[in-house]
Design a protein around this nucleic acid. Structure first.
Lengths: 342, 342
DNA sequence: TGAAATTGCGCAATCGATTGCACGAATACT
DNA sequence: AGTATTCGTGCAATCGATTGCGCAATTTCA
């Protein structure tokens, strides 16, 4: 493996000191050099195929131009668009992102934060925090720029970019109401996630506003945002004996699980039960009967999160709003049937 | 931001030299230290919350314990499982991966390789190379451990982990034949990708074996492995006037596009035309009529690729087979109808 | 018991880039 | 013309960890 070209090599070649080379190659050099020298150094650097060693410069400057991107699981289709959104601003700014999968496991998360810290990331975007997350709060307090996206950590001042969940849930519930549904069940998300909590609260509030009857059995809380839990909760609803004409699910994967549970019980959607989701993950339009859902701006969540982070890294004292709320919209597909309000 | 603990801090605390601390913390130290000293250093390191600075050690040792993972696009559901497979072995081995999206763009790829090299990755896993890729070959020849997975670069000795594409295509074509299909069209993948070329060759060879009539019009080559191209090629097939009862697509996304094109023309699958895919990406089971496809071992592709890479990084002279071929299997779903061989 | 071998640890250089400081030369100013 | 600035570049320290070498202390062996 032939040794990469270093500043020293260029210095020897051009007959100047290595520090001069460094300055010549620094786009925003504070010391002025002769135009001629800069030119000569730049061209030989080019010719020799010089590539700066990020390790060395990072060691010296304490800036690695890399950031950590923590997500629950890259296989969950909710997250890749967020990643691309974040990279759409990070990459042009010269940052490289290190993506880690937490698997929503606190122990893993702790370990992964250490990994990121060891690698000297300049900041962290966390797309999967729990509502309470002392470790992340501590790291942020120590001074590492950090933002959370999609979800947020409570009781701290880490900037968060989230969706308008109250608005989205209210919109969806009103939509079901307009479609004639009166007995509406809710499969809520995990209580230890901000999205889980916010959505269930919004559901309750809106249900009350609409004067909907909401028996305890019509509201089940899932342990995870996945299909399996969607199935389990739907079966629980079905078995509880509580009557309902629609299920509002706290996210799409729960809704997909609901589809499956209904099918297993010989019920059809939307004929027997209407179902709605939340997030608007890919492929939903191809899966019958087409899940009516709330589309969140996945790409923008990542993009804006990264923009905020870049601001924070540029100026540690900049004030960033505690939460940035992004608008959502309702996407109508086939999983909701208009019924006659009995 | 309080300064991280360094070896020097521990040295001062324990009253020994920094080099002794370094050796005490090195699991496979070649110099022997007193058990007592090691113990004392280890506990104070623990107590002080020492985390090694990877930049510094990487600078000195030329090993960063990070690898580059090049994929076309993380939003393409084919790749996240490959990523997880790779990380399932990299992470336990202490490696961190830097994932970059090439968008199948050669210019971007060149830039991204440089990014990875600047970061001093110890090796690269490329999941999206073109058949010909001089830049990657050059980097590999310079001595950087590299493997390609899923696809391979031709005319070079970079180890590749690929699927049994000839076997898979043959299996699928025989399957269609058994189901009574005789006039079978093929939507091939891009010619500049090894998977595109290998599959079309396998198709041709197997078609000949089965004595199938294969007019030129029954074979269209796509420019990209995506739904849009699947649509375009299907419409082209339909418009060509060549008769066919089934379309064997070179991958799932092309097949999904075929579904759509047939629907637009008022044709139904599998009633009017049978369609098959390749890869076995997620969600296929939920999309009617259920795509019959060849399931490739996505996770294992990543896992084995990473295992090979780790071997290469451990010993630059180790001999790795030029290609490792992984078995595939046929997954029967609803998109193929048995017909009466006219 | 004395020389030789071994053990345990410190010293200092090193990886590559950055940057405060200093110094000589060129320019400006009075 | 002589001094004060400014300019362009070199010098050397530094970031944090690693490692070859060497030295003193201890152990081994004849």
């Amino acid at each position: 493996m032939n040794r990469p070209v270093t500043l020293k090599d260029i210095a020897r070649e051009t007959g100047v000191h290595v520090s001069t080379v460094s300055r010549a190659l620094d786009p925003n050099a504070r010391t002025s050099l002769t135009r001629e020298v800069v030119e000569r150094i730049r061209t030989t650097a080019e010719r020799m195929g010089y590539r700066p060693n990020r390790l060395a410069s990072g060691l010296r400057t304490k800036r690695t131009m890399s950031i950590g991107l923590m997500i629950p699981d890259i296989e969950n289709t909710l997250f890749p668009p967020i990643v691309r959104g974040a990279e759409s601003v990070l990459e042009p700014a010269g940052y490289t992102s290190i993506i880690v999968n937490t698997d929503s496991d606190r122990k893993r998360e702790t370990k992964l934060v250490d990994v990121l810290l060891e690698r000297g990331v300049d900041g962290i975007i966390h797309a999967a925090p729990y509502r309470s997350d002392p470790r992340m709060v501590e790291v942020a307090r120590r001074g590492l720029p950090m933002v959370t996206v999609n979800r947020q950590i409570e009781n701290c001042d880490i900037p968060a970019v989230v969706n308008d969940d109250p608005g989205g849930i209210a919109m969806m519930l009103r939509y079901l109401h307009e479609k004639g549904h009166r007995r509406i069940a809710h499969i809520a998300g995990p209580k230890n996630l901000s999205t889980g909590r916010t959505r269930i609260e919004a559901f309750r509030a809106t249900a009350q506003e609409l004067h909907l009857d909401l028996p305890d059995e019509a509201l089940v809380v899932s342990d995870y945002f996945d299909e399996q839990e969607g199935r389990r909760c739907t079966l629980q609803l079905l078995d509880s004996g509580t009557g309902f004409t629609a299920i509002l699910c706290a996210n799409d994967r729960l809704a997909l699980g609901a589809f499956d549970a209904l099918r297993r019980r010989g019920l059809s959607c939307p004929e027997d039960v209407s179902v709605t989701g939340y997030n608007g993950i890919p492929f939903l339009d191809l899966i019958p009967p087409g899940l009516t859902t709330i589309q969140i701006p996945q790409f923008d969540i990542g993009r804006i999160g990264a923009e905020l982070l870049i601001k924070m890294m540029a100026d540690p004292d900049v004030t960033i709003p505690r939460t940035t709320i992004l608008p959502v919209k309702l996407v109508e597909r086939g999983s909701v049937k208009r019924i006659d309000p009995a």
